[in-house]
Design a protein around this nucleic acid. Structure first.
Lengths: 136, 136, 136, 136
DNA sequence: GTGGTCTAGACCACG
DNA sequence: GTGGTCTAGACCACC
């Protein structure tokens, strides 16, 4: 369920963070669900314990996970997440999307390639769309 | 041309980096173009000189800018940019988009809200689309 | 009696922990006293049940509270609290105060502002001081 | 200049963070100053490289330091620090001081002991006070 | 030289 | 069993 590329130049723990965030956003893992123990996930992915621990810690600091010794790591309920004021949230999202799109264009992707990529990934998060299958 | 929010919780230099990346991706500033001196940009935006310097440095590290004493700061041409292998690039883009979409969903944005936001920002990068609106 | 700011960037459960610690330290709630059930406190404060539960858990882990099913959550007596060796305690306190003062100075508070703030908060914990004001 | 206790139950990297924050707040190290390389500080303190690296990273994330490969770690200028809105800052400080005072009282320190301790540590941050030497 | 990352393996505290 | 911390030592990328 979690896919990691050891060959990527993106640090493994950052990839892990992104993957877990994606699973939470997609609802694949929900508030209260337990994440696999660091040792097990590390073994499954073939990476070191500390690398997983760091990803868990980063997400705990961000308020998405809650881990405690002896009790495992669970997904926090949505209300626990410090989102800040609506305007701030909006800005943060815009900044995040702007970066992603600039990344794509700078890498040479065309508008349509980028749109396809985004549609694919939105489908993974929100479920398949009714709009995109009909027109092309 | 560059918009910065001092109230945002996103670090100012990160906002600057995102904005400049956007302008480069959009072609508003092209390879070889000179960026304003750090002092001038800092004064224009009402922010600290060091903040601008750090943004320039981050972009220089990323290979998008080239600065040297006396020559100012210029945009590198696309072909000089170190992009890495195609598969790596693809992964990096996917990772970037995945994070942005997860951000949006975790912040409570609906699929349509996110789609609208993306369309707006794509229009700023690639020009207005023919699909989403009839007027332009 | 407990004041929480939803707008603050300090995690709500951390605010709750600090507030309850303050009430215990001030003697407002004493050893053996029962704390309100998580559901009630959550409803009173208008926050999520899990948030209160986590605060109670953190305090239980720290040895200040004791909760068990059916008995509710009660304040532990001071003698039962695991404090560690005197030297360790001293170090921990110093570390805690050092952090607080550094926080204040880094945020731009002057010596007098910080002193006033501390005096106010000491008065809430130990009762009004004879030194700082003539009236009480 | 930096003092660490290996015997303390406070994690070493947290002690390091607190110490460096203190030095920055006290002005002992100022904006633009370079911190010792991770390897050197680790050797000086007799601890591991990674432990120092983690402290540096935590402070970098917090916006107090700026480190980049090959260039060392420097203290950020005050304007770069994301402090947020005044009201938020005030709340954060209050929360920090409240915790410290509760710590002290719960550990059994008297009002006077706590006051003395605070005066000592304020003197280290803001310089010796004129007020405290005269009366007792 | 610098910081950043990852691995391997150990110990601790908690439940 | 869990997560948290620390050590030792390696490699990388950057300057």
């Amino acid at each position: 369920m979690i896919s990691i590329s050891l060959a990527s130049d993106v640090p493994i723990h950052d990839q892990l963070v992104a993957e877990i965030r994606r699973l939470i956003a997609a609802g694949t893992i929900a508030a209260g669900d337990e994440l696999p123990p660091v040792r097990q996930l590390a073994a499954d992915l073939g990476i070191n314990l500390n690398t997983v621990a760091r990803a868990y810690r980063d997400l705990t600091d961000a308020g998405l996970l809650s881990s405690s010794r002896g009790r495992g790591t669970v997904v926090m309920s949505g209300t626990e997440r410090p989102t800040g004021e609506p305007a701030q949230v909006r800005r943060r999202i815009e900044s995040s999307i702007s970066s992603a799109l600039s990344d794509a264009k700078l890498a040479g992707l065309s508008r349509d390639q980028t749109r396809d990529l985004i549609n694919t990934m939105m489908a993974r998060l929100w479920g398949p769309s009714c709009e995109e299958g009909a027109s092309p």
